[in-house]
Design a protein around this nucleic acid. Structure first.
Length: 471
DNA sequence: GGAACTCGCCAC
DNA sequence: AAACGTGGCGAGTTCC
């Protein structure tokens, strides 16, 4: 629980009306296909049992059991770490914050032990079964689920969701996504629709730092990730239809640009880019290693040709890019970060444009905000408030027009809607008008255009069947 | 026997 | 100076 520090009447009203609109969503809930969930639950359980039997028949298991005094639990990471790192003598690729050898997917995957890979497979299946299907089945109320939305739990004045948490349903892993999301369905005869703000946090950050170069990117919808991919991976030309280039663009986006915006620095970025995205495992790079940069060139060869032959060279390379990124590309943004940090140190709080004040710590044990916190909090909070304001307005409009469409969920920068088939076009224009026109008019501190994307399922299609809607 | 912690992992 | 921001949740484990 946080202390809500609303400094203005407007901030108070946003919380008040927001709470009412979210409560309405919660009451309406989302349809749940119980039978489908039950089927998946059984299927997953069978897959888990099969893998478990395979493991228990293996010599790996027998050796593990022999090494222990009591009956081992193959699902205990503590016992697994002890066996692998203390008894078998493997070196963990990373450690946890308490200094023990890590047993996360990354670390275990590196070992190349097939029984351990089976354990990782089980982990994934159990996550889907117990965390997701399990919580949906537990919270099921006659074919509807009513996730809670909280406005009083997050330090940044974002929302959270629980029982079940509607804001972390699987999406990236397509197999797990289908299992979970296909159980979440519209009302009979309706569609599910999702409206997302495109790059909302980056756009809202621009209102704070006002960096002209960043504003230029956002105003003209220019592709920063492409520019960074070219620089990081020495690409002379970038072809967006080239799948190798698309991959490298994604690496630049997820391995450099986003982490930098959240306050990461060059060294972890470089290590991540090299190992996770570039698939370059050794410190010195040999010929023919890493992902492809074109039909017949591996990343290692490409980097060596450009004078980068080891992870140490690459760290230096990324260090230069980071310096250029903040010093030359976005100096005004950089300057704002420094000012924001020193202002926080002077005053002991950071204010949001939406009228809220952050001074409470998020992490236990610390009574102050870190530098990254002081920079990130106002952006994260007011970005969410753009979504919350939109939810309130859309709710009013749906009510005003006596529509049958209802909002049923909210995920930080997106609204999930249960749409009556006759109201599809109206909902699209209402949402688009509120989110891209009325919102920037209402909050004049917004200084770049806001964009939205729509997705929709077929009639009676589940949440796993979302398709882009071209407006 | 329950509270609190650790670890891992899902989302934005 | 600091070193990726915000959550929820399940399972195992330890503390009281």
């Amino acid at each position: 629980m946080i202390e809500i520090n609303a400094k203005t009447r407007e901030a108070y009203d946003l919380m008040h009306q927001g709470t009412l609109a979210l409560a309405k969503m919660e009451r309406h809930g989302i349809g749940f296909d119980e039978a489908k969930a039950q089927t998946f639950y059984v299927q997953l359980s069978e897959q888990i049992a099969t893998l478990e039997q395979k493991i228990k028949k293996s010599t790996f298991y027998k050796e593990w059991q022999r090494s222990a005094k009591t009956e081992i639990n193959i699902y205990s990471d503590l016992q697994l770490a002890d066996f692998l790192y203390n008894i078998k003598g493997y070196t963990p690729t990373s450690v946890t914050k308490t200094g023990k050898g890590a047993t996360n997917a990354e670390a275990l995957g590196h070992l190349g032990i097939k029984e351990v890979d089976w354990l990782l497979d089980i982990r994934k299946l159990k996550k889907a079964r117990d965390t997701y299907l399990g919580s949906l089945m537990r919270e099921n109320n006659s074919g509807r689920i009513h996730p809670h939305y909280n406005l009083n739990l997050v330090t940044t004045y974002r929302s959270s969701s629980s029982d079940p948490n509607f804001q972390n349903m699987p999406k990236r892993d397509k197999e797990i996504m289908k299992i979970v999301r296909s159980c979440l369905i519209p009302s009979p005869g309706f569609h599910l629709m999702e409206v997302d703000f495109s790059q909302l946090e980056v756009s809202i950050a621009a209102a704070y730092h006002k960096d002209p170069a960043m504003i230029d990117y956002l105003k003209h919808d220019r592709d920063m990730h492409k520019d960074m991919a070219k620089q990081i991976f020495f690409l002379k030309k970038f072809d967006k239809n080239n799948p190798y280039h698309s991959y490298l663009r994604k690496a630049a986006k997820n391995g450099f640009v986003f982490p930098q915006f959240y306050g990461d620095y060059y060294k972890p970025c470089a290590l991540n880019l090299g190992q996770k995205w570039g698939k370059l495992q050794d410190e010195e790079w040999k010929r023919g290693q890493g992902v492809l940069v074109d039909e017949n060139t591996h990343l290692s060869d490409h980097l060596i040709k450009n004078g980068i032959s080891s992870i140490y060279d690459f760290i230096e390379h990324i260090k230069k890019i980071e310096r250029h990124f903040w010093g030359k590309r976005f100096p005004v943004y950089q300057e704002w970060k420094e000012t924001q940090w020193s202002n926080y140190q002077k005053r002991g709080y950071v204010d949001l444009y939406t009228g809220f004040r952050c001074c409470a710590p998020s992490k236990s044990g610390s009574s102050t905000l870190s530098r990254n916190d002081a920079i990130n909090y106002p952006v994260q909070g007011s970005a969410f408030h753009c979504l919350l304001w939109s939810v309130i307005q859309l709710d009013k409009q749906l009510e005003l027009h006596g529509m049958q469409t209802r909002m049923i969920g909210q995920i930080h920068d997106a609204i999930v809607i249960d749409v009556h088939p006759d109201e599809v076009n109206d909902v699209v224009s209402l949402a688009k008008n509120i989110m891209t026109k009325l919102l920037p008019e209402h909050w004049s501190w917004i200084n770049v255009p806001l964009r939205v994307e729509f997705e929709m399922t077929p009639q009676d299609g589940s949440w796993a069947e979302m398709q882009g809607l071209h407006i």
